[in-house]
Amino acid sequence: MRTRRGYRWFEAARGENPFEPASRSDRYLSEEERLRIAALHLGSAGVRRTVTELGRAPSTISRELTRNAAAGGTYRPYAAEKRCRARARRPKPRKLDQLELALQVELRLVRNWAPE
């Protein structure tokens, strides 16, 4: 029986995952920070207290709680992390792949219209 490629990569990496996800910049919230936000939010801590605990901007915490709230208003950190990874996925679709839009851009450039 032929060994699958994934097992060979795993063995070559001495049992470590050779395809660990690339680390994210500190600009983005980490999964640990999202879990801390959830714990504080469940404990009825306000945004300002969460800000002092995490050292982030109040707008970041407020946006995170608003963007990733469930139907009942509860914050779900694992779902938030999953959505974050999906939004960051590459390659992104290009706008000019839409034929109608590409034709309009080309037509207006031929007419010397400004890009604005």
Rank of each mutant, 00 (worst) to 15 (best):
M1Q: 07
R2W: 05
R2L: 07
R2N: 09
R2S: 11
R4T: 02
R5Q: 08
G6Y: 07
G6T: 15
W9M: 15
F10D: 01
F10Q: 04
E11K: 09
E11F: 09
E11T: 14
E11S: 11
E11I: 15
A13L: 07
R14G: 02
G15T: 02
G15W: 00
N17M: 04
N17G: 05
P18A: 02
P21E: 08
P21R: 13
A22V: 15
A22W: 04
A22F: 07
A22Y: 07
A22L: 13
S23V: 15
S23K: 11
S23G: 15
S23D: 11
S25E: 07
S25W: 04
D26I: 07
D26M: 11
R27Y: 12
Y28H: 15
E31Q: 12
E31S: 08
E32R: 05
E32N: 10
R34F: 00
R34N: 01
R34D: 01
L35W: 05
L35S: 06
I37N: 02
I37R: 00
I37D: 00
A38G: 06
A38C: 12
A38F: 03
L40C: 07
L40G: 06
L40W: 04
H41R: 13
L42H: 10
S44V: 11
A45D: 10
A45K: 05
G46A: 12
V47K: 04
V47F: 01
R48N: 12
R49T: 12
V51G: 04
T52Y: 01
E53V: 13
E53M: 05
L54R: 01
R56Y: 00
A57I: 05
A57L: 08
P58C: 01
P58V: 00
S59P: 08
S59G: 11
S59H: 12
T60W: 00
T60I: 02
T60N: 02
R63G: 11
R63N: 09
E64P: 09
E64A: 02
E64D: 11
L65I: 04
T66D: 09
T66S: 14
N68M: 08
A69S: 14
G72E: 15
G73H: 01
Y75L: 02
R76V: 14
Y78T: 13
A79D: 15
A80M: 01
E81K: 06
C84A: 14
C84R: 15
R85I: 12
R85H: 08
R87H: 10
R87S: 12
R87Q: 15
R87C: 13
A88L: 11
R89C: 07
P91C: 02
K92M: 07
P93R: 03
R94M: 10
L96I: 08
D97I: 10
L99V: 14
L99W: 03
E100Q: 12
L101N: 05
A102I: 10
A102M: 07
A102S: 13
L103D: 11
V105Y: 00
N112E: 03
N112H: 06
N112R: 10
N112G: 07
N112I: 01
A114T: 03
E116Y: 00
E116L: 04
